[in-house]
């Protein structure tokens, strides 16, 4: 397969996932902002999602304060923010268009109509552009594209590159989300375990659509260990790091078999998956969750570089 085509599939999928993550992050902040005031620390929820999306500095450069309105605008509509939902959808569409010969028309049509709907929403009445509707719309659109891909696409190498993009992006986003919860939202240690903390955990789980799943899998109150286990080490959670790494390893292994040799990216992914499988949550928390997550995010970046190198992408 031409590297350009594979790269387009990879990035189309990353951008779709990124749009969805942005929507989920916004929902966390939105939920948290609705909770009763309970001391310091919780007011910076809007700033925290900028940190989670990795755009704090870029936002600061706009000279705005991280108010609900400013952040919502920036994360959904702003054309100067490369990670805004608007830009992610446009970039996903450009990539899908470039890879069109290797995609089914279903996938193209689903994404293209999402894009056209977004343009309509921009033109339409502001009441239809509130944060809640936009986030729900984004999640539904991302699911529709992924769904049409899963159900119509040939399971060839293109299938693997598309999914690689999805899970590498998702792993990165989950790690950031968790890191932000722990180190941005709770600046002082005495707040851990308090009412604010409980509420924030609930909001965070809701953001990954996993509150009920969590309760089903774990009994009792939220605790950092349980949440960390759920989002890092529990393979049944579709957004957990281990699940993402398992999928990444799976797709890179498939490519390795098809090409008759394991790539650098494949070796890295197998290593990441193996490390997670052998880890346990107590050790992670004791050694420092933040350090663990920072290291994981760095490894994800290395993995992306390795995919670029192994399959001759130009790097976007």
């Amino acid at each position: 397969m031409l590297s350009r085509t594979a790269e387009s599939l990879y990035w189309a999928s990353r951008y779709i996932e990124r749009a969805e993550s942005a929507a989920r992050l916004l929902m966390v902040a939105y939920r948290m902002s609705l909770m009763p005031t309970a001391g310091d620390g919780h007011e910076n929820e809007w700033a925290s999602i900028l940190a989670a999306a990795g755009v704090s500095q870029a936002f600061a450069a706009t000279g705005q304060q991280p108010t609900a309105e400013a952040v919502t605008q920036y994360m959904i509509f702003d054309e100067s923010n490369p990670s805004s939902i608007r830009n992610c959808i446009a970039a996903a569409r450009e990539n899908v268009r470039a890879a069109r010969p290797s995609l089914t028309s279903d996938v193209w049509e689903t994404l293209n109509s999402a894009y056209l709907q977004f343009l309509d929403l921009l033109q339409g009445p502001p009441a239809r552009r509130d944060l809640f509707s936009m986030c729900e719309w984004t999640k539904a659109s991302a699911a529709a594209v992924r769904g049409s891909f899963e159900t119509t696409q040939l399971q060839d190498e293109g299938y693997d590159f598309f999914n690689l993009g999805c899970f590498i992006e998702r792993a990165d986003n989950t790690a950031r989300l968790l890191d932000v919860k722990y180190y941005v939202l709770l600046p002082t240690i005495d707040m851990v375990g308090g009412g604010v903390d409980q509420y924030q955990w609930a909001a965070l789980l809701r953001a990954v659509s996993a509150r009920r799943a969590f309760h089903w899998a774990y009994k009792g109150d939220y605790s950092p260990e349980k949440i960390a286990h759920f989002l890092i080490l529990n393979p049944i959670c579709p957004r957990s790091l281990i699940h993402c790494c398992e999928r990444i390893d799976h797709h890179l292994s498939r490519l390795g078999r098809a090409y008759g040799q394991r790539s650098l990216a494949g070796r890295l992914a197998a290593g990441m998956y193996g490390d997670l499988a052998e880890n346990d949550v107590r050790r992670i928390v004791e050694d420092g969750l933040h350090e663990f997550l920072s290291d994981f995010i760095a490894q994800t970046r290395k993995l992306d570089e390795a995919v670029n190198r192994s399959y001759m992408f130009w790097g976007q």
């Binding site: 397969m1 031409l2 590297s3 594979a6 010969p101 190498e157 590159f161 490519l255 090409y259 001759m312």
Partner: peptide, 30 residues
Amino acid sequence: LADQMGIDLVEGRDLFVDGDFVHMRTTRGP
């Protein structure tokens, strides 16, 4: 035509020159 002939449809940026030959960038290597 690419489809009918079963050959790759490339753009300039898919190709590069190395030494004496032209190569295309594929996921299996040059």
